[in-house]
Design a protein around this nucleic acid. Structure first.
Lengths: 107, 107
DNA sequence: AATTAACATCGTAATATTGCAATATATAAA
DNA sequence: TTTATATATTGCAATATTACGATGTTAATT
């Protein structure tokens, strides 16, 4: 086992869970906050800043890219990673829709 | 390895990531939606409804309880699980604060 | 008291994730 | 063209997660 049975859930449920999952690691939270605080393209002070090996940071960046939260641009021999604000807002809205639609009281 | 290095992140970052992580599984999304739709205490049609084994559903419920999203009450020989709306809203607000504070454009 | 029903917990197998060293790749600088 | 720097990818070890059968536990029912 160890395999999530995605086939028994709806596409929306799987998508939602995927967004939550990608955000569900403190390194990825920290990376997003750091990039945001810089208010400018961050290349790789990130590795020093986060405190994980370069390979590990690169892997986390890849996951953030996988749901479109980050876009990267080549900047000389460095990479410039930025938050895709449009996508960011879109995902925030989807999560809020879920939160607002899933709020019943009974006890 | 396989161990998240929580000690190198702030408590807030770890907490945020933990919330996201718990919501990051389609079964848990589905459980929350089902409980919400019933508009009443759900005991266990849940197992039939979700399509996972009873033990597995119970495990997912435990994780949702771990961050306070669900409260359970004994109801005869059944359990009544409900969404804790206050906690639900509190977590929604925390996630929104994160989203709103982490939204910079640069490229 | 015995039986049944509804959960929870334990143990375990399969797979996923995290993290890193080593290595590959690409671009700027010398 | 060589060298240096920045980043991505690969391979692997350790741990976590998912899922489920088997087994406990508790409370209603007989």
């Amino acid at each position: 086992m160890g395999v999530t049975k995605t086939q028994i859930f709806t596409e929306k449920q799987n998508d939602l869970a995927q967004f939550f999952k990608v955000l569900g690691h403190p390194a990825r939270v920290a990376i997003l906050q750091y990039i945001s605080n810089q208010n400018a393209c961050i290349c790789n002070d990130l590795v020093e800043e986060i405190g994980l090996a370069q390979a590990t940071v690169s892997q986390h960046l890849k996951e953030l890219k996988s749901i479109g939260l980050l876009k990267g641009e080549v900047e000389g021999k460095s990479m410039c990673y930025c938050i895709d604000v449009e996508r960011w807002t879109e995902i925030q809205n989807q999560l809020n829709t879920f939160f607002n639609n899933t709020k019943s009281n009974c006890c």
